[in-house]
Design a protein around this nucleic acid. Sequence first.
DNA 1: CCTACATATCAACTACTGTTGAAATGTAGA
DNA 2: TCTACATTTCAACAGTAGTTGATATGTAGG
Lengths: 119, 119
Amino acid sequence: MDERQALAAFAALGQEHRLRVVRALVTAGPDGLAAGVLAETVGVAGNNLSFHLKELSHAGLITSRREGKSVIYNAAYAGLSDLVQFLMRDCCQGHPEVCNPAAAALAACDCTTVDALHA
Amino acid sequence: MDERQALAAFAALGQEHRLRVVRALVTAGPDGLAAGVLAETVGVAGNNLSFHLKELSHAGLITSRREGKSVIYNAAYAGLSDLVQFLMRDCCQGHPEVCNPAAAALAACDCTTVDALHA
DNA sequence: CCTACATATCAACTACTGTTGAAATGTAGA
DNA sequence: TCTACATTTCAACAGTAGTTGATATGTAGG
C-alpha cells in the first residue's frame, strides 16, 4: 500500500456515514449486507449511500457483488489490514516491541490467505 | 474509544500532511521530533503545520512537550491502538479468527502498559 | 411487455477544510 | 533588556466534500 491509497482509505473512514458502513460490514462478516439494509442501519438516503459506497470501494475498503435485485457489500479485510500496517510500518525504527505490542503483533501476522474466505 | 473520537482520528489521518506527520512520529519512536524538524520533513510551512499538529493532538494521535525553545511531538501509540481496535471491534460477530488473523492478534493484545515507556 | 423494486448517477447548493500572510507569544543568550 | 529563534494564533480566501431532489439503470415477477 502506498501513501495515496492510505490517504484515500483514512479520508473515507473519517466520515460518519462511511465509518458506520465499514463497521457494520466488519461486524457482519463474510455474509455481507445489502445496500438497502446498510442505508437503514446507517441512517442515510439510498442515493447518498451509493455515493459513500463508491468512495469506500474506490478506497479498497469494501467489495460488492450483485445477488438478484440487491447488491451485497463486504468489508475488504485485507485492505483494512494493509492500512493498519502502513500506519505502523517502521514503528520505532523497526522495533515495534519497544513502543507498541499491538503493532508488533500485527507486523508478525501473515494475512495473505484472508480473502480466500470471502470468495 | 467512541465514534466521535474515531471519526476525528480517521479524518485527521486522511490528510496528506497530517498522515506524514504521524508516520514520521511513529517511526521516530519515544524520542519524538521537534515541530521545526517535522515542518521540514513533511514539507509544510510552520504556521500551517501548527494547525495540523493541533488537529492531531485534539484527535488523540500525538502528544507534545516543551523542551527549551522547541516543542517535541510524539506519536500517541495507545491512541493509535485504540483506533484500530475500534475499527475491528466485533469483527465477524466477535470471531475475528474467521475473517482476519490480524484483527485476532490485535484483540488478543494487551496494550495497557504501552504509554509507561514514553514518560 | 409492463410494473414494481433496488440501486446508481447527475447537477446544484451549502458548508467545511486547508492554505496563506501578518502578527503575537514564549524561550534563551548577549 | 534587547535581539534572535521557535512556535502559535488569527482573518481571509479558494477549493473540496456531503446532501438533496430528480432521473436513469438494472433486475425479477405477473
